[in-house]
Nucleic acid binder design. Structure first.
Lengths: 237, 237
DNA sequence: CGCCAAACGGGACTCCTGTTCCATTAACGC
DNA sequence: GCGTTAATGGAACAGGAGTCCCGTTTGGCG
């Protein structure tokens, strides 16, 4: 999308260059598994890949660049998805897929890394967006077919349903750091399904309810005890 | 809990020490807003806070340490939550609260930072867990009351419902990097509510479905098949 | 087969992060 | 007040990440 891969800019993507990239990306993943993103040192990667440090700096620039390229690589590979004819089974399969990606030692480390990188590096963020954009779109087709079959309400936002399946898993993984296991994955799928069946994903914007509670204030604002009585001073436009 | 704050270990937590901590944490937040976690340099923080670099290193050790302490500080402050008597309003208020925290320039930067730090630093991860543990527990009470009132099914896992409200917001913020606005927040709350009403959060483990399609396989070749051969109780309504 | 430029590799160099040492300040107890 | 010493502040020091320079390799092409 944004960039075919790190070979895109190369004017001579011949044998050696491709070999170098392959070796470096593999080494990067190894390092990620062993030391995590914070411990990803360009030196180490270069040494492990058996290439010059200069080369790694020149082509990838930073650890973020490495993981971004890695993610781009993964984005081009992944695509399999189920289409069983039953939304429930499809969504379960989707959840299982995410679970697998997150659980797998190698892939999990990579995802953690790319997400960490994405918090501070635009290139990594773009790679991440591209990856999920593609993946969500793939799985969304199953949901769309379910809508066509009448299993889900007309107007259901398929992509949103798919995202809703992954969201709790990533929430646990990244925010609460709770373990993510099969049980959680199944529940996640079923929750999304239940909400979808209830029409919570139909595209129309829901109407506001009477007392739309004010959110918490930032610490600098120092308002404790929101009584919710205060009416809609909207959060931000 | 793990540590009251960074003052805990201090044997002489008197005026100056407290002042230093305050100044350093404030400076840390400023730096986070301006440069983000990746650009958080101990030197800069020290200079900005008007304290010696040595002091910052001695007491916090690393950028992660700074951020973790900041999160601990925030955890002790936050507590406001709505209890309007209507689950829908409460959950909307919860979503708005999260939205506010994420949207606020200062708080948002801090959360991003602590999450980034948590991916590679156990102390930051612990601070993050503590923060959300507390916050979720607070909001869960509103859901519990809703269960008591009969608005939601018996056996509903209140904490799970609360987490389900935040999950999509953090998913967008961290994974897909889509903008998080009020619209998304409201939808998130209503999705969680719909799922809760449908009984998707009752504590019993859901039953397996017949044709559990083959999940996708992650590239490393491990298959994930949801078998969920657990005991069961029906859950869709 | 041989040219040319693209890409790589190694080593020296720079700069910045983090540490150490010691003098100075100011809480806390009396 | 006054002493003790935890805690801070400054400056010099060390180590490592990232850059630069330039020579070497190698893929593309006639």
């Amino acid at each position: 999308m944004e960039q075919e891969s790190r070979l895109a800019g190369m004017q001579r993507p011949g044998g050696r260059t491709a070999r170098v990239r392959e070796a470096v990306l593999a080494a990067t993943q190894d390092e990620l598994v062993e030391r995590g993103f914070h411990g990803l040192a360009m030196d180490q990667v270069a040494a492990r890949a058996g290439v010059g440090k200069t080369t790694v700096y020149r082509r990838w620039g930073s650890p973020s660049g490495l993981v971004a390229d890695l993610m781009t690589e993964l984005a081009e590979q992944s695509s399999p998805h189920a289409d069983t004819g039953s939304v429930e089974a499809d969504l379960r399969a989707n959840a299982a897929s995410v679970l697998g990606a997150v659980t797998d030692r190698r892939l999990g480390a990579t995802f953690q890394a790319v997400i960490a990188a994405a918090t501070c590096d635009e290139e990594a963020a773009a790679a991440l967006r591209a990856f999920y954009g593609r993946r969500v779109a793939e799985w969304a087709r199953a949901v769309e077919r379910a809508v066509e079959r009448g299993e889900l309400p007309e107007g259901t936002d398929a992509a949103e349903v798919v995202r809703a399946v992954s969201a709790p898993l990533y929430y646990r993984l990244l925010v609460t750091k709770e373990p993510v296991d099969e049980n959680v994955a199944v529940r996640s799928a079923l929750q999304a399904l239940a909400a979808a069946r209830a029409g919570a994903f139909v595209r129309a914007v829901p109407p506001p309810v009477a007392p739309s509670g004010e959110g918490e204030r930032s610490r600098s604002g120092r308002a404790q005890n929101v009584t919710t009585a205060d009416q809609g001073s909207e959060m931000r436009g």
